[in-house]
């Protein structure tokens, strides 16, 4: 489903915290419908970049548009058109899956009818029928993450940002999770994902590698492996991250 339509465009996007430059003049384009892997060691500046694109942080300098909207002036419009799921599990644990779906559907402006249909379909798709009315806190982590992803795209956004979505999840669930990602991508939703699992990096159409606040590489996994004469993405990552000055956080 990848097209040449640009949905995220950044130009020299920079964020400083005092003397510390978290992201330093990063520029890249993300195309509609692609799965874009945003890689880098801990502390490389990924989360900062993502927060700026989601309208949570104001950049220090540079420009960017997300879904065609300016990240300085049109954050409210951006928020309507993106989904977001963070490494921290971010559904309400004292609500049931059904109630979470209803709440997030509601605040994204879905009608009551749409919410009912969506929640029925989601619960069936995730195999949550028997858990739909139990509190989320009692669900296993893998299910929670799958539910969180489904809720993050409940309003069919143009782009969904995933910040280490599969952290701490077992390999089988991770595979299932990626099936959900492919489904969403097939429907035309652009996936912007950060991860530390290099096997997941292989699933991406293109990946960018961030080191010390700058983007060192941006290409498809196959091209990168060829360039670094590496058999796996692990080796590519190691080759690039080795030069990092910043300590992990």
């Amino acid at each position: 489903m990848m097209t040449k339509e640009v949905v995220i465009k950044t130009e020299k996007l920079t964020k400083r915290f005092g003397d510390f430059i978290a992201t330093n003049e990063i520029s890249f384009d993300v195309y509609s419908g692609e799965i874009f892997g945003f890689l880098g060691a801990n502390g490389a500046g990924k989360t900062t970049a993502m927060s700026m694109l989601c309208g949570l942080l104001t950049p220090s300098s540079g420009n960017a548009t997300v879904a065609g909207y300016d990240i300085y002036k049109q954050t409210e419009k951006i928020k309507k058109n993106i989904g977001y799921m963070s490494q921290k599990f971010s559904l309400y644990e004292d609500l049931t899956p059904r109630e979470n779906i209803r709440f997030f559907g509601g605040i994204y402006g879905l009608s009551d009818k749409e919410i009912r249909e969506k929640s029925g379909r989601l619960i069936e798709q995730l195999g949550l029928a028997s858990e739909a009315d139990k509190l989320v806190v009692s669900l296993p982590l893998g299910w929670k993450q799958k539910l969180a992803f489904s809720v993050a795209i409940i309003h069919e956004p143009k782009i969904v940002f995933l910040d280490e979505p599969t952290g701490g999840v077992d390999p089988v669930t991770r595979r299932q999770f990626w099936e959900l990602i492919y489904d969403a991508s097939d429907r035309g939703i652009t996936i912007f994902v950060t991860t530390h699992y290099m096997d997941e990096a292989e699933y991406c159409n293109r990946i960018s590698m961030m080191v010390d606040g700058v983007i060192k590489e941006l290409d498809s996994p196959a091209n990168l492996k060829e360039k670094y004469k590496a058999a796996t993405m692990d080796e590519v990552f190691f080759e690039l991250a080795r030069g990092a000055v910043r300590k992990a956080d």
């Binding site: 989601c54 309208g55 949570l56 971010s90 559904l91 997030f104 605040i107 994204y108 940002f161």
Partner: peptide, 8 residues
């Protein structure tokens, strides 16, 4: 954080 990325 989740609330902040929504249109609320």
């Amino acid at each position: 954080e989740q609330i902040n990325v929504t249109p609320i």
